[in-house]
Amino acid sequence: MNKEDEKKEDQNQDQQANSSSIVQKIQQLGQSNIPAAPDSNIHVLSIIGQVEGHIQLPPQNKTTKYEHLLPQLIAIEQNPKIEGMIILLNTVGGDVEAGLALAEMIASISKPTVSIVLGGGHSIGVPIAVATDHSFIAPTATMTIHPVRLTGLVIGVPQTFEYLDKMQDRVINFVINHSNIKEEKFKDLMFAKGNLTRDIGTNVVGADAVDYGLIDGVGGVKEAMAKLNELIGQTNETGKQVIQ
């Protein structure tokens, strides 16, 4: 054995010492003993923290970047092995246009989709939650519905007001088109006074969201999986009929 080989072996040993598990050692030898899990026919998209849009938010924000999610949604639509998608929401809102982009993408996917609002689905999380075929909310989860606001220097007040108003209408229209809530009711919640400390709006909790028609049902993983499998069954049946 020459010196170079010895050096390499030393390095190998060092690396092995660093690796925390036996799996890593096996991987370094080009082998893997991880049992191949069967491909899941249901994929999961988690929307967490801030929905990040055109501007990169400071790193201490936990963000969901729409440029990561949009290609994933296309991949889900394209992959014949994927039959359904679950969306997990625990978001505090974020960029209006990124949120609406995600919501529109989710709404226009041909495969069955189900969403679960877990801790919170606030602001722009609302249109994302209702974009799916069926939506669930955990009994303890909340959704804050409030107007779109602006802080900072404003140049051209009437035009800015007009723009914000339109922006808000886009959110309202999307929500009323994709859920059972009436426009009047949604606007009532959005402009309600006395519910939020420093703001106008409403904090809608679990069952209330279902009562208002915003969300389809109260439930968690079990209910969402059952519903998704039911929807997948329906799609498969109609698919078969078309072939026949």
Partner: peptide, 12 residues
């Protein structure tokens, strides 16, 4: 960019 969130600007 318009952020639609209940958080304050300082938090973000």
């Amino acid at each position: 960019m318009i952020l639609y969130t209940p958080l304050t600007q300082e938090e973000i």
